[in-house]
Nucleic acid binder design. Structure first.
Lengths: 183, 183
DNA sequence: GCTTCGATATATCGATATGATATATATCGC
DNA sequence: GCGATATATATCATATCGATATATCGAAGC
């Protein structure tokens, strides 16, 4: 699944500019499990336009002149459904935080503790301000599942890190003192 | 953090070929939170070699002639520590499964249920065969945290999906019958 | 009314990464 | 010895990232 397909998906939720599509990945309902940069969104929209899968809506007179609001065409809707009929590819995750924690024994213990606390704070922030302007009960079942999945994800891992925190901090500090004593 | 840095990290665990580094991302301890393909690993090793951060170990006579076993140099170890002193970048996730589920209302209900069950099976498989040939108690604290994090992640989300399964399947089938009745 | 600043918006580009493919050797069961 | 699978290196077209450039809009402050 490339950025073109996910752009079709975002547009199926309503007309949008390239900028608004980007914001969907940053803040919106996709932010937990998808991302794409301007450098891929704008070329993708260009190709979709050339292929007739999206069109430019009539610009409202209120907006600025160069603003481009994209809409899904019937062909675009069909292309989205066709893409969803394919087998999904495996999840891809890249967490630099976990890489850092994995190699905590090579770090300054204070840095390692800071990374731990930053990561925990990240999960707690995600639990606190879940970007849900809509009542989950009003969502289609699939969206409700995805929303619940995200919530459970952040809650479980925040809880795990809170459980482990004291032991980790203590072990790190212990290791730091051992190193100092050896010097 | 680019592939060069993570290669240094893998090599800090022991000498390895490019192929073995790839396998670390596929099967090994990094498989849950990092990935990199041959197309990035081999160029990365080439640059690291040119920069003196890794060297080629003496090939054992038992091995094949073109095999290249890489080792971390002191400079490479220092570069790894320096990279770990930097602030980690934010996590990146791309889950096509969640995209599919999010748009389940646009899918054939049977396909949507299959995607759900595939995803659940994936999490259950991850819980069952955790790639841990080492006793967590023997790991450095950071690695133990990362290992526990992965375990908790898979367990929590498998549990969540098991909880939600019946309701989801039923709602999907209901939606499917409504569509058929309307036709 | 003017200015400043942050949000909105489009676009491009070098560097990096993916995913598929080609090629070849080693190992193991049969 | 034979075929299948695992080991191993390497490349390339395509896709993507991340940073940057540019410009307009709206609201707040004065």
């Amino acid at each position: 699944m490339d950025v073109k397909t996910i752009c079709l998906g975002v547009l199926s939720l309503g007309d949008a500019t390239g900028y608004e599509i980007r914001k969907t990945f940053e803040d919106g309902p996709f932010s937990h499990f998808f991302d794409a940069s301007y450098g891929s969104i704008y070329p993708a929209l260009g190709k979709l336009l050339a292929d007739g899968l999206v069109t430019l809506s009539d610009a409202e007179p209120s907006g600025r002149s160069d603003k481009k609001v994209y809409s899904l065409t019937d062909a675009g809707h069909a292309a989205l459904r066709a893409a969803l009929a394919e087998q999904p590819g495996r999840d891809r995750v890249r967490s630099e935080y976990l890489v850092h924690l994995f190699f905590a024994h090579l770090m300054d213990p204070r840095d390692a503790c800071r990374v731990f606390d930053d990561y925990l704070a990240h999960f707690e922030r995600m639990v606190a301000d879940c970007p849900c302007d809509e009542d989950p009960a009003d969502m289609p079942p699939g969206q409700r599942i995805v929303h619940g999945f995200g919530t459970r994800f952040y809650e479980s891992l925040a809880a795990f890190m809170r459980e482990q925190r004291d032991a980790f901090i203590q072990e790190m500090n212990q290791a730091g003192q051992d190193t100092e004593a050896a010097e």
